[in-house]
Computed example of a mutant assay.
Amino acid sequence: MRPARPTLPSTVRATTSAGRRRWLAGGTALALTTLAGCATRGLDTGGYSGPAYEGPPRRETAHALTETGELLHLFAARPTYPDLRLQLTGAVGGEPLLALARHSARRQLVVLGRSGRVYAVNADTGALTALNRPLPAPLTGQRFAMDVDPADGQLRVFGDDGAWRGAPDGVLQPDAGAVRLDSLASARAADGRAVQRYGIATTGGQLLRLELGPQGLQAAPVGSLGLPPLARASLGVADGADQGLLMLQLASEPLINRLALVDLASGRARLLGLLPAPPQVLSLVAER
Rank of each mutant, 00 (worst) to 15 (best):
A101T: 15
A151S: 14
A91K: 02
S104M: 08
E95Q: 12
A123W: 06
P96I: 09
R107T: 13
G153Q: 10
D169K: 05
T89D: 10
G126D: 01
L181I: 02
P168K: 08
L139P: 01
A190D: 11
A185L: 02
W164M: 00
A99G: 04
P136Y: 11
V148T: 06
P134L: 11
S104N: 12
G153N: 10
A137S: 14
G170F: 11
R188E: 11
R106H: 11
R193N: 07
Q87I: 09
L184D: 01
A190S: 12
L98P: 01
A123Q: 04
T129W: 11
P150A: 04
L139Q: 00
R188Y: 11
G162Y: 06
T140M: 06
L135Q: 14
D175Q: 14
Q196H: 10
Q142N: 13
D152K: 06
A151E: 13
V92S: 13
Q196W: 04
N122W: 02
G141D: 00
N122F: 03
M146W: 04
R193W: 08
L88R: 04
T125Q: 05
D147A: 12
L184M: 11
P168W: 12
E95T: 03
A151G: 12
L135A: 14
A99C: 10
A105R: 12
L100N: 01
S104V: 12
L184G: 00
A101C: 14
A151N: 11
A178T: 02
T125C: 07
R143Y: 09
A120H: 01
L139S: 03
L184C: 11
A185N: 04
